[in-house]
Design a binder for these strands. Structure first.
Lengths: 188, 188
DNA sequence: TTGGAAAGTCAACAAGGCTGTCCTATCAAG
DNA sequence: CTTGATAGGACAGCCTTGTTGACTTTCCAA
């Protein structure tokens, strides 16, 4: 079990980064970082009696307005019943609007209301602030590596979905406003 | 709100990686990757009627045998009651042993039993396998960046704790077996 | 016209967070 | 030796968010 091999001169490249110990460090880093990653939005959500599930719904509806319940279900990877509970409160509270599908009237297309947009922005700005600080601190090269490892960690289907999400500017139904749009937001 | 600035020639360094859009990509990468990260152990745990909380306890007890309940509490960042529920089942099931503290008899020092060690190994090997594949795929430079960003994302206290955990070989109570120990485990 | 997909609903259950309260054992200081 | 503080454990009860299973309504498409 746990066959450990003492390596004398190293093979070709430096393989020390594949050590069980290095892997454990990475695992723990994921655990601690993810906790921090969700901490800021969680504070805001707690005030409003919402949970992480609400944040996730708001995030993906904001990113892709008009997406159907089924698509959202697929992205989030939860059951219809679980999502429905969350979605219902968001709709009741006037943060999300559910319109009957234009192509297929069985489908429901989801949109954020004004108020929903406001909350989403508040939540995601809190989350971005931490991310931005971490990015800035680590630098562009580190960020590239960060993304590369995370992508390599995903299940293949998820990764495909993730990469398709906005990798190509991709026209879904709206012709999509073109223009490269090199935007850079800052504050503080 | 959301002040966007069209950047013509870029400032000094390339700041495109701090774009709100790039930050959003990073946020989504965290979400999807974390889901994958927990997926493999979750499958094993489900078989045995355990949950993620049990895995976390086993992990940290394994990493630091003899740690006290209070230390474990601090690392996990949950309440005593929440941990206790999990710990109790692990002790009842004979995976964890709780010995009276040697220095302070009020404390309980936690150890994995044979069986606990076996399960921990099974869980962590599943998790490491995915991590190893991702690491190998991304390469050592990317891994360095990955860790750098995750560390920058942590709360300062957590980061200090994380870095202290095994950064210096550090003798806690055992004199700690020295020797650099360049080990490299593989299979497949 | 009919089969099946999309959506929604109800009920029930479980994991794992949380708070609050209370108790015991033990240490350390006065 | 007493007394206050600390470590741990237990019980009750609450919440969110995940799950299954069963059932209905709506509506598209063959």
């Amino acid at each position: 079990m746990q066959q450990k091999v003492r390596v004398p001169g190293m093979i070709g490249e430096d393989l020390l980064f594949l050590t069980d110990d290095q892997l454990r460090r990475g695992i723990e880093a994921m655990f601690f970082a993810y906790r921090a990653f969700t901490a800021d939005p969680d504070l805001i959500l707690a005030e409003l009696d919402y949970g992480r599930a609400h944040h996730r719904a708001l995030h993906f509806i904001n990113r892709d307005p008009g997406l159907t319940v089924t698509s959202l279900l697929a992205v989030l990877g939860v059951t219809k019943q679980s999502l429905n509970r969350v979605l219902r409160t968001l709709i009741e509270d006037g943060l999300v609007e559910s319109r009957i599908g234009r192509r297929d009237r069985r489908e429901r297309q989801l949109y954020l209301t004004e108020e929903g947009t406001r909350l989403e922005r508040r939540l995601s700005e809190a989350q971005r602030a931490r991310m931005r600080a971490a990015y800035r601190n680590a630098g562009p090269q580190a960020v590239a590596g960060f993304r590369q490892v995370l992508e390599a960690m995903m299940d293949p289907e998820t990764r495909a979905q993730y990469q398709a999400m906005t990798d190509p500017p991709e026209d879904r139904k709206e012709p999509a406003n073109e223009q490269p749009r090199y935007t850079y937001s800052d504050r503080r």
